[in-house]
């Protein structure tokens, strides 16, 4: 008896929704294998929720503005003021919650602008490696990378009016070249892959090759870097606001809070320590999330023995 002669295919093409669910399940498995990634995700989600709903979750929403209450100034952490109050009586916890808004806003805007710019330039330069396109893009990138980032941001913020928008412009200007470099490196090696050659020999357009063949294979490091960068942008924003070039008072910003509090160290330690911890936690959260995304998008996990 021969049980292997069935030639007719039993057609069983999974529907779009089952394919989607399966992909989701698999990605979650790869992401969550490292428990720290899940911790990162929880931190990031918590920060986002708190920032978005700050007016509702902050115990004293009014304290985010120009609020003064000398009666309750300089209070150490207690049940009423979980993280204490500052020198003019504002609740530190509420101010941190509101400061998250500016920090995330800045990170999102900086990345929304610098990421596409950097990625597209990197793709072009990498695919046309050795041509004038490559030369112009990459030399320009080199110029931007040659300037120390914080100094450039300081210079721009100083020339323009010091506020959140200008701080963002400053950070954006120095952020895109990193994506260009990252994608450039990947695109130069990917363009030699046979699947790119095959598409060229079929006659596919340059647009197709750049965005359908090459770009999808760069996404893993791009997303990983993006998650890490959110943390870095927030840190840089904090540094700028620490020196007074970011969000202006009375709107709270993390760097500015650390800076203000440092004058009252060590007596009012909570004024400095808690905003600093907030910065650390955000950055840690995004870093862990970045690691998780990298694990999730890593290919070639299924080697057969």
């Amino acid at each position: 008896m021969d049980i292997n002669t069935q030639t007719a295919f039993d057609v069983n093409i999974p529907s779009a929704s089952t394919r989607y669910k399966e992909a989701l399940r698999k990605n979650w498995y790869k992401f969550s294998r490292n428990k720290l990634s899940v911790v990162g995700l929880v931190i990031v989600l918590a920060v986002i929720v708190v920032a978005v709903f700050a007016p509702y979750v902050a115990p004293y929403p009014k304290h985010a503005g120009s609020f003064v209450d000398y009666q309750h100034a300089n209070l150490a952490p207690s049940l009423t003021y979980l993280l204490g109050t500052d020198n003019i009586g504002r609740d530190i916890l509420s101010r941190i919650f509101f400061a998250f808004r500016g920090a995330l806003y800045m990170a999102v805007l900086v990345l929304v602008i610098s990421l596409p710019v950097g990625v597209i330039l990197g793709l072009l330069a990498g695919y046309f490696k050795g041509t004038w396109i490559d030369t112009i893009i990459m030399r320009t990138t080199d110029i931007f990378l040659a300037v120390p980032p914080l100094i450039l941001a300081l210079a721009i913020s100083a020339v323009l009016k010091p506020n959140l928008t200008n701080a963002m412009i400053a950070v954006t200007v120095m952020w895109w070249p990193w994506y260009t470099r990252l994608v450039y490196g990947m695109a130069t090696s990917l363009r030699n892959e046979y699947f790119v050659t095959a598409a060229e020999l079929i006659g596919a357009s340059k647009f197709h090759i750049l965005f359908r063949e090459i770009l999808p294979n760069c996404l893993s490091p791009i997303f990983t870097k993006m998650a890490l960068d959110v943390g870095w942008v927030i840190l840089l924003g904090a540094a700028l606001s620490f020196v007074g070039l970011g969000e202006q008072p009375p709107t709270p910003a993390l760097g500015q809070m650390v800076s203000d509090g440092s004058r009252y160290m060590p007596d009012l330690w909570w004024m400095t320590i808690f905003p600093s911890l907030a910065i650390i936690i955000i950055i840690l959260g995004f870093n862990l999330l970045g690691d998780g995304i990298r694990d999730m998008l890593a290919k070639g996990e299924h080697d057969r023995g």
């Binding site: 699947f195 079929i202 006659g203 999808p216």
Partner: peptide
């Protein structure tokens, strides 16, 4: 009129596409 099959089946198919996307390219282009 002139096509090629490459040696390395790992590198000649785009790992970020599914088979449908891979096979529809020549059909669409031509």
């Amino acid at each position: 009129d002139l096509q090629i099959v490459f040696q390395d089946p790992g590198s000649s198919l785009n790992p970020s596409q599914n088979i449908k996307q891979i096979l529809e390219l020549p059909l669409k282009v031509h």
